[in-house]
């Protein structure tokens, strides 16, 4: 499958501080790729380099097969959507007027405004002035603006950080729709549940380096401790090794009709991150 993003040996120094050190990864077309890491790990720096807002110190960053700095050209800008911490809105204008401007800039019909507002559950706020919106609503308007023009590649930096669970679910649904339409999504987050829900593959970034890169399922399998937990009728729980001996124990419990529930002991992405990096996500 075609690679939309190819990064190799990427490094970024801010004065004497290394924000990224030798980062390499590829993102395939149509994939939702999660870039996970705690605050200050280099996630936003990577997005800024990939969207031509920042120049790397070393290494190569290709987007659509061309150096990321070429994204400054209008034809490439039409193909990307960006939501970062510095995506601002015109506070004295309405939601509609903000999105209308971007419809004109991206040559998108105004009918699209209702579609994107529906995707972010803000259809009723169309005529509201931006300064009157809550933080979560603002986040949803900036998100709507990022995918207003149906970009081929969408960069989302902590897209649901200010949202409540109901609206987060709406956003997930919207992003799934975009993915079905073939949009490649590059997502940074420190929310491991979000990564598990949305991402085909995730990369763990810590102190400017990628520590792990695989699908959430493969990572959980890799770090699973090969045991299952059995909850018994008397309320106790027993951890049983997978294998012949464990199978015999299970057989005994089941023969005696003692088993209430069985579940595998797979770690969460958060557990894996802590194990690999020794750091907590926050």
């Amino acid at each position: 499958m075609e690679n939309i993003i190819e990064v190799s040996g990427l490094a970024k120094m801010f004065s004497n501080l290394a924000a990224l050190k030798d980062v390499s990864f590829k993102v395939k077309k149509g994939e939702t790729f999660g870039f996970l890491g705690p605050s200050g790990s280099g996630k936003t720096t990577t997005i800024k380099i990939l969207t031509a807002q920042l120049a790397q110190t070393d290494g190569e960053a290709l987007v659509f097969g061309v150096p990321a700095l070429k994204l400054k050209e209008g034809s490439y800008r039409k193909r990307i959507g960006v939501l970062t911490d510095n995506s601002g809105l015109y506070v004295r204008l309405t939601v509609y007027d903000n999105l209308k401007l971007y419809c004109d800039l991206y040559d998108v019909p105004y009918t699209r405004i209702d579609e994107v507002l529906d995707m972010v559950n803000l259809k009723d706020a169309k005529k509201k002035v931006i300064s009157k919106l809550s933080k979560g609503m603002l986040q949803r308007v900036t998100l709507a603006r990022a995918f207003l023009h149906k970009p081929d590649l969408l960069f989302l930096d902590e897209p649901t950080s200010a949202l409540d669970p109901v609206n987060t679910k709406h956003i997930y649904k919207g992003l799934e729709n975009l993915k079905e339409q073939g949009t490649t999504i590059f997502l940074t987050t420190h929310d491991m549940n979000e990564a598990e829900t949305l991402c085909d593959r995730v990369a763990f970034l810590n102190e400017g380096k990628i520590q792990l890169l695989d699908s959430p399922k493969a990572l959980r399998k890799k770090f699973a401790d090969n045991t299952i937990t059995v909850e018994l009728a008397d309320g106790s729980k027993e951890i049983i090794d997978r294998g012949a001996e464990g199978a015999q124990t299970m057989y005994n419990y089941m023969s005696e009709n003692k088993v209430v529930s069985i579940y595998s002991n797979e770690p969460t992405l958060g557990d894996i991150f802590v194990e690999v990096t020794g750091r907590k996500l926050s």
Binding site: G74, R77, I80, S87, G88, L89, R145
Partner: peptide, 14 residues
């Protein structure tokens, strides 16, 4: 100040 200029710069507007 409001970070809206960056939005224009990232758009197809030259």
């Amino acid at each position: 100040e409001k970070n809206t200029l960056r939005g224009l710069m990232l758009s197809p507007a030259s």
